[in-house]
Write a protein that binds this DNA or RNA. Sequence first.
RNA 1: GCCGACCUAGCUCAACGGCAGAGCAACGGUAUCGUAAACCGUAGGUUGUGGGUUCAAGUCCCACGGUCGGCUCCA
Length: 580
Amino acid sequence: MSKVNDANNLSNLRHSLAHLLAAAVVDLWPDTRRAIGPAIDDGFYFDFEFSEPISEKDLPKIEKKMRQILPTWDEFSRIELSATEAKNEHKNNPYKLELIEQFSDGGRKKVTVYQSGKYRDLCRGGHVASAKEIDPQSFKLHRVAGAYWRGSEKNPMLTRIYGLAFETKKDLEDYLALLAEAEKRDHKKLGPKLELFMFHPTAPGMPYWLPKGVTVYNTLIKFWREEHRARGYQEIVSPLLNKKNLFVTSGHFEHFWQDMFTLKVEGEEYGLKAMNCPNAMIVFGSKSRSYRDLPLRFSDTDTLHRNELSGTLNGLFRVRSFRQDDAHIFVTEEQIGQEYERIFEIVDKFYSIFGLEYSFRLGTRPEKFLGDEKTWDLAETTLQKILKAGKHKFVIGEKEGAFYGPKVDILMKDALNREWQMGTIQLDFQQPKRFKLEYIDQKGKKQTAVVIHRVIYGSLERFIAILIEHFAGALPLWLSPVQVAVLPISDKFNDYAKEVVSELRNTNYELRIELDERNESIGKKIREAELQKIPYILVVGEKEQSSRTISVRQHGESKQTQLPLPELVKELLEKIQKKN
RNA sequence: GCCGACCUAGCUCAACGGCAGAGCAACGGUAUCGUAAACCGUAGGUUGUGGGUUCAAGUCCCACGGUCGGCUCCA
């Protein structure tokens, strides 16, 4: 059987279970209104409007009812109804009425309902041939959540019940084990444990970076600076507070002001920096620019604050204060394609170093946008052409563009397989017009510049979160906050250990070393160094002191090798150089 | 913000509505040790905050805060 069919089978199974869930819910709470219930990645869900609130405590009861109903079901029979007949069946259900109206094309076409046992529901199909195929132990209800009808916050919030479902009981158990495993990689747990960062209730969503975390943070920025300086980027630093009128000019006032931290000083309204672009525009416009200056690449990593809704905060994935590895590139229209290629090359370099998997998404014109549709269409086709010419695979994210222009997003997955937007490369014809950003062309005429907004990491915060989960906290040597731990076997060898440390420091390279001089057993020191995920553990005692060597143990390996210090130093420096 | 869950010592967790406890970490001491936890002792708490019910609240109820899983939004 082909993979596609397997996937369809699983999806049919999940969709069938969604019907079963609805049947159980209606049986237990007859006046519940049903909305929709599709199959998803790891199971299914169904949205309901309950007359009384339910909670996760009710799930076992519903699950039990599902298992009671299941044996009474066999095939899912398809029945065609006219729109009027279907509407009659769902008189008191505004959600179904809306769907019938839509599916019947305003009453012109018939709709289908599917019946299994005593339960029937409006549905376009996609079920198992017989409910007898369903293993009653292969599914599990696991969560209750609110979800807006048709995904719009203007609509009422329904109650969504999520279920996990697989072909067999074993597949379900394996998946649950996978979730438990993912929990161990969770950066929200590992970060504070490894003393990288922490949060405090006085600053929700705003991380405190601890010394070790700052090392990782700065190492990433250092690498970023080197790579960008070499490619002609020039770094700027700009104010964190600007008067409201800056954001009125940029268009952010209209689209973003309610998400910004704002304050009033001497009767004047200020906004705390939530994005870098307006100030980059100001710097570009601060003197007259020639076509010879383009592409002009300004980079910056100033701290940004966004007053995100409390319910959206999520560890380092979604924070209220963060830094982007930002740059604004001012180009002529002809230079757009070439500059995008240069950016894709950077993306490739950065992401391949970490061995991270990513995908591209082209975000098109959103509902709220600046400028005219013609310019937007031009920008969107330009991006499509560039992506296709560079043979970059991408999906289209309808209406996912920035309000000032379409964008190419880099997406990555966390330990729980949730997708996050990381880097983004945005094409902007609007802000240059609003800021009147011009350059003088070959003929001495004024032309409006085009701006490319781009980040590679995305935000340092989110990127570090992904790294922690990707490496389960054991960061590659070049990024590790502590690269080498030196552990004397007893305090008789502290002096030799200090000698080793000072020789390592003498390598003319900034090795990050920790000496553990505590009066603890060597077993305990090793255990703690392993838990801190330090890549290199050096043990020194009688043997090493007399032979002027060290014993090396690498993180996660119990194997040890005894060798002279210079050999180790060579290995370390090579690895760091290669960013292994 | 909305729906749901959770919050006990620095960490991981216990405690039927009836005297707030253990292990690890910290601190003091003993042991000077060979690759993932030596031993003995000391200290550590307004049970997230504020109300309420009760003879009695960590436990029940309400509000607020924070966190997590979703929805919407977003780097």
